[in-house]
Design a protein around this nucleic acid. Structure first.
Length: 304
DNA sequence: GATTCGTGGCG
DNA sequence: TCGCCAAGAAT
């Protein structure tokens, strides 16, 4: 498999690896002390949530649940509460379910096998590759939004990658991977970091980019995005907003919540009911009686 | 494959 | 101000 670039692969490799060695952020999940579990926790939290907001949640989470078994021993509702306002709270439920599966199927150790990782709840192609690469130093194509954007520009000369990850992107990423496992693992995180810090979505900092001189998009004159309109995420007035408001009440309650408290967050009854039903269907909220709800498996505030 | 699923910060 | 964007996964 060959990839058309303006320079030999070893030059591209060393250029980005050298840049990473000098500019990498000092992130806690990249330290030698970070366990595979810690890496996995960070990857779950970083799914669609910025690093800055993950940092404090990550520290609190690992202090409370330093191992998968520790999390599995607690109620899933506690995971949802600790998730706080990171967004997409189903991730908290899935991380709890993954911890349970790791405890039951893998003796409490995060598996180092890509297929076994992929089989865990909440672990998709990206997260499986990321954990295998970052925690176990294996050679995998790690295709997140940052990497995809860097490759779209440097290799394909377009400003933005396709909406969904394509087979062509996987071929490109695989072809660019250094041969040695450890080098490939560092390469993966280095390209990701380049996308996060330099080759950003809105205003790329091409001045100071280590690969600007070999970037196909740059060499083509930085042509603007030419594809179909990319769908923006509307939020105000959607079920997602209502779900968020409902769950915020449940998180802060530390126990059972009466219907009236939930009714107060949204005035449109049909949408409100639909949102609550959705939360229950997703396992994020548990009905405990007529008009009474709580986070799943949470300990009731008043004891008999 | 297109949709759904939170939350907040920034240009 | 407000649309865009942020280490995706599941259906």
């Amino acid at each position: 498999m060959s990839v058309h670039t303006a320079v030999p692969l070893p030059v591209l490799h060393s250029t980005i690896l050298d840049w990473y060695a000098e500019h990498a952020r000092d992130l806690p999940w990249r330290t030698p002390e970070a366990t595979p579990w810690a890496v996995m926790v960070s990857e779950f939290m970083l799914q669609q949530t910025p690093v800055k907001r993950v940092l404090p949640a990550y520290a609190a989470w690992l202090e409370r649940w330093p191992t998968p078994a520790a999390l599995a021993a607690d109620a899933p509702g506690e995971a949802v509460r600790m998730w706080g306002r990171l967004g997409y709270p189903r991730r908290a439920l899935r991380l709890h379910a993954a911890a349970t599966a790791i405890t039951e199927r893998h003796g409490g150790e995060v598996p180092d096998d890509h297929a076994q990782l992929l089989a865990l709840p909440g672990v998709g192609e990206y997260t499986a590759a990321a954990v295998a690469s970052f925690a176990f130093r294996q050679r995998h194509a790690v295709l997140d939004t940052n990497v995809r954007r860097v490759l779209a520009r440097v290799v394909d000369a377009v400003e933005h990658p396709p909406t969904a990850t394509t087979a062509a992107e996987r071929r490109t990423a695989t072809a660019l991977l250094p041969d040695a496992d450890g080098t490939a693992a560092t390469w993966a995180v280095a390209v990701m970091e380049l996308g996060a810090l330099v080759c950003t979505a809105r205003t790329p900092r091409c001045v100071g980019c280590p690969v600007a001189a070999m970037c196909a998009w740059r060499l083509a004159g930085s042509p603007p995005y030419d594809g179909p309109p990319r769908r923006g995420q509307t939020y105000a007035g959607t079920d997602r907003q209502v779900r968020g408001k409902l769950l915020a009440v449940l998180r802060e309650a530390h126990g059972e919540v009466a219907q009236a408290a939930l009714d107060a967050v949204w005035d449109e009854p049909v949408q409100r009911a639909r949102a609550l039903d959705g939360l229950v269907a997703d396992g994020l909220v548990e009905p405990v009686g007529p008009g009474v709800y709580r986070l799943p498996g949470a300990v009731p505030s008043s004891r008999p």
